[in-house]
Design a protein around this nucleic acid. Structure first.
Lengths: 244, 244
DNA sequence: AATCGGCCATGACAGCTATCAACTTACGGG
DNA sequence: CCCGTAAGTTGATAGCTGTCATGGCCGATT
């Protein structure tokens, strides 16, 4: 655990580790100068939307502080929590397919982002062609990781899903230079449940179970991982469906 | 609510949108001449592998006849069926992230593919820069669709998952110009189960259920959809997890 | 300070599905 | 033609988890 600090842009090739379980579309492309010295900061308060599902692509956003969730609604059904973005994550990349944002980005708390407008993105893409390629690669990589994660979640029980979730979160925080064992998630239980395909009650019960097993202590939205290896073990083995 | 329009992706129903649920990485990019007059055909018999998980990217493959499945193994766990490719599908695109094939491609029956070697791909990418972009877009699109599908599958019961599966298959066949109500899948029940995160028994029972309801008749690997609308209704509503 | 409402936890119960097991069917080889 | 193995089906059972209902906790508003 590198004793990194809050606004850590060190971006030193973080991707050497297969970036397993990289939930949102976060990229280590913070070397883009435009993202740093930009006075193009935006501030949002809780529950304010950064962009809405279905609106045309307007730009990318780098989370500076706070966090947001991305939710997609199918068909007027329930909105599904698709991703959680924390400081350092780049948001909006998944709009490149349709030139439309596939989900609504909603601030979970006071949030500041720096904006990379569409024009700026195009410019950059033209100026530095390898950037586009790099972006594409990273997107592809992330998205593939997530696909794998989702497929294995399909085969896992609630215990396995939540273990997987916290292991993933732990890795993300570690990568960002924060403590991998103690962190705060702005997501509600309900958000977590939606994200994992469970119900609030099951999430609650499973957290209580983890607590009893001395694996993870949750109080409100603060989490303290006591036995990461135990969680990893659960995440890997605790699937019950379609074993073989 | 914004006047949802072409932004369907979200709003509009997932099924009318053609590209949704496009299980494998199939692209309509058959305009590439190299793919047509290529004498670079390869023939594989059942159970032979086209490429193995973890091997470096060597090229793309266009399925000409037969079909294959792509399976990924995590951690020495059970192999998961990730995708099913039928004639017209382009396979191997998901290797661009890591330059490594993320899964093993296995022929489900006698299979012919035309090969687009890595060099050829690079050449083409250089010659026609918009091709690369197009490819990237399509990949992104597909992968996002699949992400949405997987997330909603997480919230669905066996009935919902299988209904979803067959509706998706129906769409794919329709897109390819085949009958959307009668088709043959080379996938075994076990493959389908793995693909959907269920067990063989549940798949079997659910198919029997569909049969009784006059929704879908399955005999062996031949499927005959009797009530597509009914299946769509099930696919959309038959989720039980995390309602709100 | 009191109240209201959202979030969270917990219990009871029912429904769904994995598991185990037995059986049938399909298919390929001797 | 018979048999052996794999694939598919069906049944019984147990376990997990969704649903419904209750109560506590906390923050926000009055």
């Amino acid at each position: 655990m590198p004793p990194a600090r809050a606004n850590d842009h060190s971006g030193a090739d973080v991707f050497t580790d297969m970036s397993c379980l990289h939930l949102p579309l976060g990229l280590p492309l913070e070397e883009i100068p435009e993202l740093h010295d930009a006075e193009t900061f935006t501030l949002l308060r809780k529950d304010e939307v950064l962009f809405e599902q279905g609106t045309p692509f307007a730009g990318l956003f780098l989370v500076r502080s706070g966090s947001l969730k991305q939710v997609s609604t199918i068909h007027g059904g329930d909105p599904l929590v698709m991703a959680y973005a924390m400081p350092g994550d780049l948001v909006g990349l998944d709009a490149i397919g349709q030139n439309v944002y596939p989900g609504t980005a909603l601030a979970l708390e006071t949030l500041t982002v720096s904006v990379l407008s569409q024009e700026r993105v195009s410019e950059l893409g033209a100026q530095v062609p390898e950037l586009r390629q790099q972006l594409c690669r990273n997107l592809s990589q992330e998205v593939h990781d997530e696909r794998l994660m989702l497929r294995s979640l399909l085969h896992r029980t609630a215990v396995g899903r939540l273990a997987y979730f916290f292991v993933a979160m732990s890795m993300r925080f570690r990568r960002r230079g924060y403590s991998p064992t103690q962190f705060r998630l702005a997501l509600s239980r309900s958000d977590i449940a939606s994200y994992l395909g469970l119900t609030v009650e099951t999430v609650s019960r499973t957290l209580a179970h983890f607590h009893k097993q001395e694996l993870l202590k949750a109080s409100g939205r603060d989490f303290h991982i006591l036995d990461l290896d135990g969680l990893i073990r659960l995440a890997e083995s605790s699937g019950r469906r379609g074993g073989r």
